[in-house]
């Protein structure tokens, strides 16, 4: 197996006086979808934000595509080829959908073929292309947020809870788009609470608890073992539907 695209070794992160990540070890292989699962508050979002350099790791090492990025500033990390979709969407409401997309393209230009691919995955973005992003619905904003990461081919996509709080029909659209991204051979690290979506997309799983990765393995293994799910994260409560 080739080198992982992303490797975290013993990463610890504090936020104010709280010790959130207590030594995260994680490999994200190339060309696969790795699901980061776990209950609320175990450090999944903090892990993604630490990778992006928003929170600084106080110990440990983060290697991306062979280079140590632990101490790099956030913009440099983004430009080295990571497309990040934060949990709260973070779209720029005063700008148009088009301007949001152009900003996200490192080259400053949009490849028409790529744009058409995105339009097919998220038809509302075609409709509101020239309109202000602030007037989109919640689901459409989430589409824009993901489309922004997809506007260029990235070496790695970090996606935080893309289906959170969305209507079922939009969850389906979102899952289909992510599947297409996966089939195009992308490397993805995905945080997802909806286990049905996670099961359908994930190749590999890392389960977190208390600021550490406590289990890693194949998605098939976890999906086929209800007892394991229950033990690792009490999934029977959230993932049954």
């Amino acid at each position: 197996m080739s080198d992982p695209i992303l490797r975290l070794e013993g990463v610890q992160t504090d936020i104010a006086q709280y010790h959130i990540l207590q030594g995260v070890d994680l490999d994200v292989p190339r060309g696969k979808v790795t699901m980061l699962l776990g209950r609320n508050g175990v450090g999944k979002t903090t892990t993604l934000r630490t990778i992006m350099g928003h929170w600084r790791a106080k110990a440990g090492r983060i290697t991306f595509d062979g280079a140590d990025i632990t101490a790099r500033p956030t913009p440099a990390i983004a430009r080295s080829g990571i497309g990040f979709v934060p949990e709260n969407m973070g779209i720029f409401g005063d700008l148009t959908v088009e301007e949001n997309m152009v900003l996200a393209a490192v080259s400053g230009r949009i490849d028409p073929a790529r744009r058409d691919w995105i339009f097919e995955a998220f038809p509302p973005l075609r409709t509101f292309w020239k309109g202000p992003a602030g007037t989109l619905s919640g689901g459409q904003k989430q589409m824009l947020s993901i489309a922004r990461a997809m506007i260029e081919e990235r070496k790695l996509y970090l996606i935080d809870e893309p289906t959170k709080g969305l209507a079922p029909a939009i969850v389906t659209t979102m899952a289909r788009a992510l599947r297409e991204l996966k089939e195009a051979g992308a490397s993805i690290l995905l945080v997802e609470q909806n286990f049905a979506v996670a099961r359908a997309l994930g190749d590999l799983v890392a389960v977190m608890d208390d600021g550490r990765v406590i289990w890693t393995g194949e998605m098939a293994e976890l999906a086929g073992d209800a007892g394991l799910q229950e033990r690792l994260m009490g999934l029977s409560m959230e993932g049954g539907h």
Binding site: P73, G90, F92, L103
Partner: peptide, 24 residues
């Protein structure tokens, strides 16, 4: 210009602007 758009983006959400690669 693109410069102006980045400024607007930073005004709205500076972390997000950094996370797509702009030095705020």
């Amino acid at each position: 210009s693109p410069f102006g758009r980045v400024l607007q983006a930073i005004r709205e959400n500076d972390f997000r602007a950094e996370a797509i690669g702009y030095r705020v």
